[in-house]
Design a protein around this nucleic acid. Sequence first.
DNA 1: AGGAAATAGTCAGTGCACTGAGCAACTCGC
DNA 2: GCGAGTTGCTCAGTGCACTGACTATTTCCT
Lengths: 145, 145
Amino acid sequence: MAAVDLSTHPGHLARRLQQAHTLLWTTMVSEETTSPQFAVLNALVEKPDIDQRTLSEHVHLDRSTIADLVARLGRRGLLERVRDPRDGRRNVLKLTDEGAAVHRKLVTRTARMNKVFLAPLDEGEQETLLRLIGRVADAAEELRG
Amino acid sequence: MAAVDLSTHPGHLARRLQQAHTLLWTTMVSEETTSPQFAVLNALVEKPDIDQRTLSEHVHLDRSTIADLVARLGRRGLLERVRDPRDGRRNVLKLTDEGAAVHRKLVTRTARMNKVFLAPLDEGEQETLLRLIGRVADAAEELRG
DNA sequence: AGGAAATAGTCAGTGCACTGAGCAACTCGC
DNA sequence: GCGAGTTGCTCAGTGCACTGACTATTTCCT
Protein backbone atom coordinates (compact mmCIF):
# COMPACT_ATOMS: atom_id res chain seq x y z
CA MET A 1 0.00 0.00 0.00
CA ALA A 2 1.45 3.32 -1.04
CA ALA A 3 1.71 6.32 1.19
CA VAL A 4 -1.12 8.79 1.35
CA ASP A 5 -1.10 12.56 0.80
CA LEU A 6 -1.72 14.04 4.23
CA SER A 7 -2.51 17.46 2.77
CA THR A 8 -5.89 16.05 1.77
CA HIS A 9 -6.62 14.82 5.29
CA PRO A 10 -8.72 17.24 7.33
CA GLY A 11 -7.44 15.90 10.64
CA HIS A 12 -3.84 16.49 9.75
CA LEU A 13 -4.64 19.96 8.44
CA ALA A 14 -6.64 20.77 11.56
CA ARG A 15 -3.69 19.88 13.73
CA ARG A 16 -1.35 22.01 11.66
CA LEU A 17 -3.79 24.90 11.76
CA GLN A 18 -4.08 24.75 15.50
CA GLN A 19 -0.34 24.40 15.90
CA ALA A 20 0.27 27.47 13.74
CA HIS A 21 -2.33 29.36 15.73
CA THR A 22 -0.78 28.47 19.07
CA LEU A 23 2.61 29.67 17.91
CA LEU A 24 1.22 33.01 16.75
CA TRP A 25 -0.81 33.34 19.95
CA THR A 26 2.19 33.09 22.22
CA THR A 27 4.04 35.75 20.25
CA MET A 28 1.18 38.17 19.59
CA VAL A 29 -1.29 37.71 22.42
CA SER A 30 0.18 36.30 25.61
CA GLU A 31 2.85 33.93 26.89
CA GLU A 32 1.08 33.30 30.18
CA THR A 33 -2.55 32.97 29.14
CA THR A 34 -3.34 30.36 26.51
CA SER A 35 -6.13 30.41 23.97
CA PRO A 36 -8.29 27.87 25.85
CA GLN A 37 -7.79 29.90 29.02
CA PHE A 38 -8.96 32.99 27.21
CA ALA A 39 -12.01 31.08 26.04
CA VAL A 40 -12.82 30.31 29.67
CA LEU A 41 -12.36 33.90 30.80
CA ASN A 42 -14.53 35.04 27.90
CA ALA A 43 -17.29 32.59 28.80
CA LEU A 44 -17.27 33.91 32.37
CA VAL A 45 -17.60 37.49 31.16
CA GLU A 46 -20.56 36.46 29.06
CA LYS A 47 -22.20 34.30 31.72
CA PRO A 48 -20.97 35.05 35.23
CA ASP A 49 -21.31 32.60 38.10
CA ILE A 50 -21.77 29.44 36.06
CA ASP A 51 -20.55 26.02 37.19
CA GLN A 52 -17.87 23.92 35.54
CA ARG A 53 -20.32 21.70 33.71
CA THR A 54 -22.05 24.62 32.01
CA LEU A 55 -18.70 26.18 31.27
CA SER A 56 -17.43 23.01 29.64
CA GLU A 57 -20.39 23.02 27.26
CA HIS A 58 -19.79 26.65 26.36
CA VAL A 59 -16.15 26.28 25.43
CA HIS A 60 -16.44 22.69 24.18
CA LEU A 61 -14.03 21.10 26.61
CA ASP A 62 -14.71 18.10 28.79
CA ARG A 63 -15.13 18.26 32.55
CA SER A 64 -11.65 16.93 33.42
CA THR A 65 -9.91 19.39 31.15
CA ILE A 66 -11.97 22.25 32.54
CA ALA A 67 -11.08 21.24 36.08
CA ASP A 68 -7.33 21.46 35.33
CA LEU A 69 -7.70 24.66 33.42
CA VAL A 70 -9.84 26.38 36.04
CA ALA A 71 -7.42 25.28 38.75
CA ARG A 72 -4.57 26.97 36.89
CA LEU A 73 -6.55 30.18 36.45
CA GLY A 74 -7.49 30.01 40.13
CA ARG A 75 -3.85 29.67 41.16
CA ARG A 76 -3.09 32.83 39.18
CA GLY A 77 -5.91 34.66 40.93
CA LEU A 78 -7.98 35.23 37.79
CA LEU A 79 -11.06 33.49 39.16
CA GLU A 80 -12.48 31.96 42.31
CA ARG A 81 -14.25 28.68 42.90
CA VAL A 82 -17.08 28.92 45.40
CA ARG A 83 -19.13 25.96 46.53
CA ASP A 84 -22.75 26.59 45.60
CA PRO A 85 -24.76 26.76 48.86
CA ARG A 86 -27.90 25.84 46.87
CA ASP A 87 -26.31 22.72 45.41
CA GLY A 88 -23.27 21.28 47.13
CA ARG A 89 -22.03 19.52 44.02
CA ARG A 90 -21.41 22.69 42.09
CA ASN A 91 -18.42 24.98 41.96
CA VAL A 92 -19.62 28.44 41.05
CA LEU A 93 -16.92 30.26 39.12
CA LYS A 94 -16.41 33.96 39.75
CA LEU A 95 -14.07 36.11 37.72
CA THR A 96 -11.86 38.34 39.87
CA ASP A 97 -11.11 41.96 38.96
CA GLU A 98 -7.75 40.82 37.76
CA GLY A 99 -9.37 38.13 35.65
CA ALA A 100 -11.63 40.70 34.04
CA ALA A 101 -8.65 42.97 33.43
CA VAL A 102 -6.70 40.18 31.72
CA HIS A 103 -9.72 39.42 29.56
CA ARG A 104 -10.06 43.09 28.56
CA LYS A 105 -6.42 43.27 27.56
CA LEU A 106 -6.53 40.08 25.52
CA VAL A 107 -9.71 40.94 23.62
CA THR A 108 -7.95 43.63 21.63
CA ARG A 109 -4.85 41.55 21.13
CA THR A 110 -6.74 38.51 19.86
CA ALA A 111 -8.58 40.69 17.36
CA ARG A 112 -5.24 41.90 16.05
CA MET A 113 -3.84 38.40 15.94
CA ASN A 114 -6.83 36.97 14.10
CA LYS A 115 -6.29 39.56 11.37
CA VAL A 116 -2.67 38.55 10.93
CA PHE A 117 -3.49 34.85 11.09
CA LEU A 118 -6.09 35.09 8.32
CA ALA A 119 -4.19 37.66 6.26
CA PRO A 120 -3.25 35.15 3.52
CA LEU A 121 -6.96 34.94 2.61
CA ASP A 122 -9.15 37.70 1.21
CA GLU A 123 -12.21 38.76 3.15
CA GLY A 124 -14.63 36.43 1.41
CA GLU A 125 -12.32 33.47 1.88
CA GLN A 126 -11.91 34.25 5.55
CA GLU A 127 -15.64 34.23 6.06
CA THR A 128 -15.94 31.00 4.07
CA LEU A 129 -13.21 29.27 6.05
CA LEU A 130 -14.76 30.10 9.41
CA ARG A 131 -18.22 29.07 8.23
CA LEU A 132 -17.07 25.73 6.78
CA ILE A 133 -15.01 24.78 9.83
CA GLY A 134 -17.97 25.67 12.00
CA ARG A 135 -20.31 23.46 10.01
CA VAL A 136 -18.01 20.44 10.15
CA ALA A 137 -17.33 20.88 13.85
CA ASP A 138 -21.02 21.39 14.65
CA ALA A 139 -22.00 18.30 12.70
CA ALA A 140 -19.35 16.14 14.37
CA GLU A 141 -20.34 17.39 17.82
CA GLU A 142 -23.92 16.59 16.94
CA LEU A 143 -22.99 12.93 16.43
CA ARG A 144 -21.74 12.57 20.02
CA GLY A 145 -23.59 15.46 21.60
CA MET B 1 -15.31 45.09 27.83
CA ALA B 2 -18.00 42.80 26.53
CA ALA B 3 -17.49 39.15 25.74
CA VAL B 4 -16.41 38.10 22.29
CA ASP B 5 -18.01 35.64 19.88
CA LEU B 6 -15.60 32.73 19.77
CA SER B 7 -17.25 31.29 16.67
CA THR B 8 -15.46 33.99 14.68
CA HIS B 9 -12.07 33.05 16.15
CA PRO B 10 -10.07 30.72 13.93
CA GLY B 11 -8.03 29.35 16.82
CA HIS B 12 -11.08 28.30 18.75
CA LEU B 13 -12.62 26.76 15.65
CA ALA B 14 -9.39 24.95 14.84
CA ARG B 15 -9.34 23.38 18.27
CA ARG B 16 -12.97 22.30 17.97
CA LEU B 17 -12.31 20.86 14.53
CA GLN B 18 -9.37 18.85 15.74
CA GLN B 19 -11.27 17.70 18.79
CA ALA B 20 -14.17 16.50 16.65
CA HIS B 21 -11.73 14.74 14.37
CA THR B 22 -10.00 12.92 17.22
CA LEU B 23 -13.30 11.66 18.53
CA LEU B 24 -14.33 10.31 15.14
CA TRP B 25 -10.87 8.81 14.61
CA THR B 26 -10.98 6.70 17.75
CA THR B 27 -14.38 5.33 16.83
CA MET B 28 -13.88 4.82 13.08
CA VAL B 29 -10.16 4.24 12.58
CA SER B 30 -8.31 2.95 15.62
CA GLU B 31 -8.27 3.11 19.39
CA GLU B 32 -4.60 2.20 19.67
CA THR B 33 -3.03 4.19 16.87
CA THR B 34 -3.62 7.94 16.89
CA SER B 35 -3.77 10.28 13.95
CA PRO B 36 -0.28 11.74 14.54
CA GLN B 37 1.08 8.20 14.85
CA PHE B 38 -0.48 7.34 11.52
CA ALA B 39 1.14 10.42 10.02
CA VAL B 40 4.51 9.10 11.18
CA LEU B 41 3.91 5.61 9.79
CA ASN B 42 2.77 7.16 6.52
CA ALA B 43 5.90 9.32 6.28
CA LEU B 44 8.06 6.22 6.79
CA VAL B 45 6.24 4.39 4.00
CA GLU B 46 6.84 7.33 1.71
CA LYS B 47 10.46 7.87 2.74
CA PRO B 48 12.01 4.84 4.43
CA ASP B 49 15.09 5.09 6.67
CA ILE B 50 14.88 8.79 7.46
CA ASP B 51 16.02 10.28 10.77
CA GLN B 52 13.84 11.95 13.39
CA ARG B 53 14.72 15.46 12.27
CA THR B 54 13.63 14.84 8.68
CA LEU B 55 10.55 13.06 9.93
CA SER B 56 9.61 15.98 12.15
CA GLU B 57 9.69 18.32 9.15
CA HIS B 58 7.52 15.97 7.12
CA VAL B 59 4.75 15.65 9.65
CA HIS B 60 5.14 19.14 11.12
CA LEU B 61 5.93 18.13 14.68
CA ASP B 62 8.88 19.27 16.73
CA ARG B 63 11.74 17.01 17.65
CA SER B 64 10.73 16.42 21.27
CA THR B 65 7.24 15.39 20.29
CA ILE B 66 8.61 13.11 17.58
CA ALA B 67 10.94 11.47 20.10
CA ASP B 68 8.04 10.59 22.39
CA LEU B 69 5.85 9.45 19.56
CA VAL B 70 8.53 7.30 17.94
CA ALA B 71 9.36 5.76 21.31
CA ARG B 72 5.72 4.70 21.70
CA LEU B 73 5.62 3.20 18.21
CA GLY B 74 8.92 1.44 18.94
CA ARG B 75 7.54 -0.06 22.15
CA ARG B 76 4.64 -1.46 20.12
CA GLY B 77 7.06 -2.97 17.61
CA LEU B 78 5.88 -0.90 14.66
CA LEU B 79 9.31 0.58 13.95
CA GLU B 80 12.96 0.31 14.97
CA ARG B 81 15.52 2.97 15.80
CA VAL B 82 18.99 2.22 14.48
CA ARG B 83 21.99 4.44 15.13
CA ASP B 84 23.31 5.65 11.77
CA PRO B 85 26.87 4.27 11.37
CA ARG B 86 27.62 7.12 8.93
CA ASP B 87 26.54 9.80 11.42
CA GLY B 88 26.45 8.93 15.09
CA ARG B 89 23.95 11.67 15.90
CA ARG B 90 21.16 10.20 13.83
CA ASN B 91 18.55 7.59 14.60
CA VAL B 92 17.52 5.92 11.39
CA LEU B 93 13.89 4.84 11.58
CA LYS B 94 12.86 1.56 10.01
CA LEU B 95 9.28 0.43 9.71
CA THR B 96 8.78 -3.20 10.76
CA ASP B 97 6.53 -5.59 8.84
CA GLU B 98 3.95 -5.09 11.53
CA GLY B 99 4.24 -1.33 11.19
CA ALA B 100 3.67 -1.59 7.45
CA ALA B 101 0.67 -3.84 8.06
CA VAL B 102 -0.88 -1.39 10.50
CA HIS B 103 -0.36 1.42 8.00
CA ARG B 104 -2.04 -0.61 5.24
CA LYS B 105 -5.03 -1.31 7.40
CA LEU B 106 -5.44 2.30 8.49
CA VAL B 107 -5.15 3.80 5.00
CA THR B 108 -8.52 2.42 3.98
CA ARG B 109 -10.12 3.29 7.28
CA THR B 110 -8.91 6.89 7.24
CA ALA B 111 -10.29 7.33 3.74
CA ARG B 112 -13.67 6.14 4.98
CA MET B 113 -13.49 8.38 8.01
CA ASN B 114 -12.55 11.47 6.03
CA LYS B 115 -15.67 10.99 3.92
CA VAL B 116 -17.88 10.86 6.98
CA PHE B 117 -16.11 13.76 8.63
CA LEU B 118 -16.59 16.04 5.63
CA ALA B 119 -20.05 14.75 4.75
CA PRO B 120 -21.81 17.94 5.93
CA LEU B 121 -20.15 19.79 3.05
CA ASP B 122 -20.67 19.26 -0.67
CA GLU B 123 -17.72 18.29 -2.81
CA GLY B 124 -16.76 21.81 -3.81
CA GLU B 125 -16.92 23.02 -0.23
CA GLN B 126 -14.74 20.13 0.93
CA GLU B 127 -12.08 21.03 -1.58
CA THR B 128 -12.33 24.70 -0.59
CA LEU B 129 -12.02 23.96 3.09
CA LEU B 130 -8.90 21.84 2.69
CA ARG B 131 -7.31 24.38 0.39
CA LEU B 132 -8.01 27.36 2.66
CA ILE B 133 -6.76 25.62 5.80
CA GLY B 134 -3.66 24.61 3.90
CA ARG B 135 -2.96 28.15 2.81
CA VAL B 136 -3.34 29.60 6.31
CA ALA B 137 -1.20 26.87 7.86
CA ASP B 138 1.48 27.17 5.18
CA ALA B 139 1.64 30.92 5.59
CA ALA B 140 1.91 30.72 9.36
CA GLU B 141 4.62 28.07 9.15
CA GLU B 142 6.44 30.32 6.72
CA LEU B 143 6.64 33.07 9.34
CA ARG B 144 8.58 30.89 11.77
CA GLY B 145 9.98 28.34 9.34
C1' DA C 1 45.00 19.23 13.50
C1' DG C 2 42.20 21.65 16.70
C1' DG C 3 38.73 24.60 18.36
C1' DA C 4 34.11 26.89 17.19
C1' DA C 5 29.76 26.33 15.30
C1' DA C 6 26.13 23.57 13.77
C1' DT C 7 23.27 19.46 14.14
C1' DA C 8 20.56 15.25 16.22
C1' DG C 9 18.75 13.65 20.04
C1' DT C 10 17.34 13.47 25.04
C1' DC C 11 15.31 15.17 29.24
C1' DA C 12 12.60 18.09 32.50
C1' DG C 13 8.86 20.99 32.87
C1' DT C 14 4.29 22.83 31.57
C1' DG C 15 -0.18 22.74 29.48
C1' DC C 16 -4.05 20.79 26.66
C1' DA C 17 -7.29 16.91 26.12
C1' DC C 18 -9.51 12.56 26.68
C1' DT C 19 -11.18 8.08 29.20
C1' DG C 20 -12.63 5.57 33.05
C1' DA C 21 -13.19 5.03 37.92
C1' DG C 22 -14.84 6.81 42.00
C1' DC C 23 -17.11 10.06 45.50
C1' DA C 24 -20.37 13.24 47.25
C1' DA C 25 -24.64 15.55 46.74
C1' DC C 26 -29.03 16.07 44.82
C1' DT C 27 -33.63 14.41 42.60
C1' DC C 28 -37.23 11.49 41.66
C1' DG C 29 -40.49 7.71 42.26
C1' DC C 30 -42.94 5.25 45.11
C1' DG D 1 -38.90 9.64 53.56
C1' DC D 2 -35.94 6.44 51.61
C1' DG D 3 -33.53 4.05 48.12
C1' DA D 4 -32.14 4.29 43.09
C1' DG D 5 -30.50 6.81 39.74
C1' DT D 6 -28.55 11.10 38.11
C1' DT D 7 -25.38 14.84 38.32
C1' DG D 8 -20.98 17.66 39.37
C1' DC D 9 -16.56 17.10 40.40
C1' DT D 10 -12.04 14.87 41.25
C1' DC D 11 -8.25 11.74 40.34
C1' DA D 12 -5.17 8.51 37.85
C1' DG D 13 -3.53 7.32 33.56
C1' DT D 14 -2.23 8.15 28.68
C1' DG D 15 -0.98 10.85 24.74
C1' DC D 16 -0.03 15.17 22.09
C1' DA D 17 2.78 19.39 21.87
C1' DC D 18 5.86 23.00 23.00
C1' DT D 19 10.17 25.40 25.26
C1' DG D 20 14.63 25.47 27.11
C1' DA D 21 18.64 23.23 28.72
C1' DC D 22 21.91 19.70 28.05
C1' DT D 23 24.94 15.91 25.65
C1' DA D 24 27.13 13.90 21.89
C1' DT D 25 28.64 14.00 17.34
C1' DT D 26 29.95 16.01 13.11
C1' DT D 27 31.48 19.81 10.22
C1' DC D 28 33.76 23.78 9.05
C1' DC D 29 37.37 27.24 9.32
C1' DT D 30 41.69 28.53 10.02
